[in-house]
Nucleic acid binder design. Structure first.
Length: 626
RNA sequence: GCCACCAUAGCUCAGCUGGUAGAGCAACCGCCUUGUAAGCGGUAGGUCAUCGGUUCGACUCCGAUUGGUGGCUCCA
């Protein structure tokens, strides 16, 4: 499982279809590839170089695996490393590589291992994990007989199961680079010591390294935080607060278009829209389970008239109350209640990330109440909505993940009913298999009330996020005493599907900015058309053109400033306006426009009516074409 | 929240080892009247994030706070 997953992560810059193809045709796991060995070996070499910066025994080494584009190693050191150390570390690594030291494997007993690593508390911890429970460096159980092995190259020995290159000379000394330092908790647990993690990138050759670094620079250019400012879509203000975005008129257009789309789709799928308050008494969140299970994600309460009130982190309890507000029959089901409600979550300060992770968010939310018999069909109808959206947006690079509970979280972060967890997880798994939808499984990723299908995507800089989500709730309807009368005249508790195929407006827009690199399809563009007069003499014609388009419902503006036409075109290009209409003597005389598209193509003498018809068609069909 | 780093005009950035600030773009005002990605000139704009300390003197050194960045943890 782990290997499979690492492999998926390894290919986050390739379209989904690539790893599937690679998986099926080559069937070589990442761990058996040459580059994996190179990166793994680089991690050891780096650990040696870093250790040598200090007196023997002073540097405590933890773990150092290969990752998707390179490797890292975690250390506990007498002082903080800084980027100034990188050059020296790299230089020493090149020396070690040049020494052509063989990697020698040795199988040892736990006692020998502990003796070798006396004073190295993290290694001792690992050895004890291997010895006692057969637990790997991530704390996950290992299968089969566990052997403890060492790999030694030059003067450096590490506890390691390999594999490695045969000798350090097989590594290209000009195809790696130390990238950054970051904090990381031992065994990934925030209760443990925080270590210094040094990240490096490693490749087959210099060209691959160069290509990778270039790709990182390209990715930075499409970072939604940068484009959001450049395209004037949203901003943050220190006085307003972290994670609380301010949407400008241009950004709001995109949100409005997404809502319009969602309402159309949901109308077609039988949803009804509802509206609920942002605030509620704590009683509601006690009943829903949010206060017992989700309190740390919530803003603290405010006291009013002797009651505690909370701002909502989710819309579901309100929708449950709407379900409960009248007597429900099986004939009412599935009951689909949609609301793009604004929620507030107290995300830890360090977790905030542009629009992708905010504290105030508008969910593309709906709750669907179904009988167990209706579950599969309805759940898959939601998956169909996902697919419809992803096709519309041309999103290909995603992974559907079945997020499961973990037994040790029962009663803490998960509702304490393991039998029901296992049952509903099986229902979701079977529905996905029956629907022929590929997915991966991850433990300990569920919502507190049930398992879910999350759609994982990656931001421009490679950080992973859940975009859409489709969740089953087997617990909360019962807490709310929700029932419907079934065909036999008996009271029955419904299941609830929580779903957000368009994620939150914030994350969706953030994602789309990066997905399109700011070049939105016409229907999503904050400005459809900019009319550019060649001289002042054409200003009236330009203004009338823009007004006419505006009055027909399009987002059109005329640029009547005193800049030259060339500069105005440049301005419109930089804002990624899809259509520029340049008008001069010829156009005024003939009632035409010169159409310049964002891609630089040009069409002269186009009758206004023809342009308008084309624009209308592009917008109404939500065409991906320019 | 944790570890590290960063913070100069709306934006992008200069400012040497402490002697109280500069450029380009944007904005505004003129001139030019222009054919598909920057015409020319001028004006204005900064308690150098905030607060405190060291110093004769702080944008520069130190501390705290706020906000951001890279990770970790967490997540729509």
């Amino acid at each position: 499982m782990r290997a499979f997953f690492v492999f998926i992560r390894a290919s986050f810059f390739c379209p989904l279809t690539d790893w599937r193809r690679i998986m099926s045709e080559l069937t070589i796991p990442y761990e058996e590839t040459e580059i994996y060995k190179v990166r793994h070996s680089l991690a050891h070499i780096m650990a040696q170089a870093v250790s040598e910066l200090f007196e023997p025994g002073e540097a405590k080494i933890a773990i150092g695996p290969p990752i998707d584009t390179g490797f890292y190693y975690d250390f506990e050191l007498p002082r903080q490393l800084t980027p100034e150390d990188f050059k020296g570390i790299e230089k020493r690594m090149r020396q070690i590589i040049g020494g052509k030291h063989p990697f020698e494997k040795r199988i040892v007993t736990a006692e020998e291992a502990k003796a070798e690593f006396a004073g190295q508390e993290f290694k001792i911890d690992l050895i004890e994990g291997l010895e006692a429970g057969g637990v790997d460096e991530y704390g996950e159980p290992l299968e089969g007989d566990v052997e403890i092995s060492f790999y030694t190259h030059d003067t450096f020995t590490d506890l390691c199961r390999g594999p490695h290159v045969e000798h350090t000379g097989q590594i290209n000394p000009s195809a790696f680079k130390i990238m950054s330092i970051a904090g990381a908790y031992w065994r990934g647990d925030e209760k443990n010591a925080q270590l210094q993690r040094v990240y490096g990138t490693g490749w087959k050759n210099k060209d691959e390294l160069k290509a990778h670094i270039q790709m990182l620079e390209e990715a930075k250019k499409r970072d939604h935080r940068k484009l959001g400012r450049e395209l004037d879509l949203f901003s943050f203000d220190e006085e307003v607060g972290p994670g609380l975005p301010l949407w400008t008129p241009r950004g709001t257009v995109i949100i409005d278009e997404l809502e319009k789309l969602a309402k159309e789709v949901e109308r077609r799928h039988g949803y009804k829209q509802v509206r609920t308050p942002h605030l509620t008494k704590e009683d509601l969140f006690i009943r829903s389970g949010h206060l017992p299970y989700y309190a740390e994600g919530m803003y603290p309460p405010m006291e009013l008239d002797g009651s505690n009130y909370y701002v909502k982190p989710m819309n579901c309890p309100f929708h449950h109350k709407i379900f409960a507000s009248s007597h429900r029959s099986y004939r009412d089901l599935p009951l689909r209640l949609g609301e793009y409600g604004t929620c507030y979550r107290y995300e830890k300060s360090g977790e905030l990330f542009g629009l992708m992770r905010v504290r105030s968010m508008q969910m593309n939310d709906a709750h669907i109440y179904v009988s167990e018999a209706q579950f599969e069909e309805e759940f898959m109808d939601v998956i169909d909505i996902y697919k419809e959206y992803f096709e519309l947006f041309g999103i290909e690079k995603y992974v559907m993940q079945l997020s499961l509970h973990a037994a040790d979280g029962l009663g803490k972060k998960y509702v304490d009913n393991e039998a029901l967890w296992i049952k509903t997880e099986g229902m979701v798994r079977q529905a996905m298999i029956n629907g022929g939808v590929p997915f991966v499984e991850e433990k300990d990723e569920a919502a507190f009330y049930g398992p879910k299908i999350d759609v994982q995507i990656w931001s421009a800089i490679g950080r992973e996020f859940s975009l859409a989500t489709n969740q089953v709730d087997f617990a909360v309807p019962e807490r709310f005493d929700l029932t419907f009368v079934n065909a036999e005249g008996e009271e029955e508790t419904p299941l609830c599907i929580h779903r957000a195929p368009l994620s939150t407006h914030e994350r969706m827009v953030g994602f789309l900015i990066e997905h399109y690199a700011g070049k939105f399809p016409v229907w999503l563009s904050p400005e459809h058309v900019r009319v550019i007069p060649i001289t002042d003499a054409h200003a009236d014609y330009a203004k009338k053109l823009a007004d006419d388009l505006y009055n027909q419902g399009f987002r059109a503006e005329a640029d009547l400033g005193d800049k030259r036409m060339n500069a105005k075109i440049r301005d419109a290009q930089k804002m990624q306006v899809p259509y520029m209409l340049v008008v001069g003597d010829a156009e005024v005389e003939n009632g035409t426009v010169s159409l310049r598209k964002r891609d630089g193509s040009q069409q002269d003498g186009l009758p206004v009516a023809e342009f308008t018809a084309m624009l209308k068609e592009k917008v109404e069909t939500r065409s991906p074409e320019l």
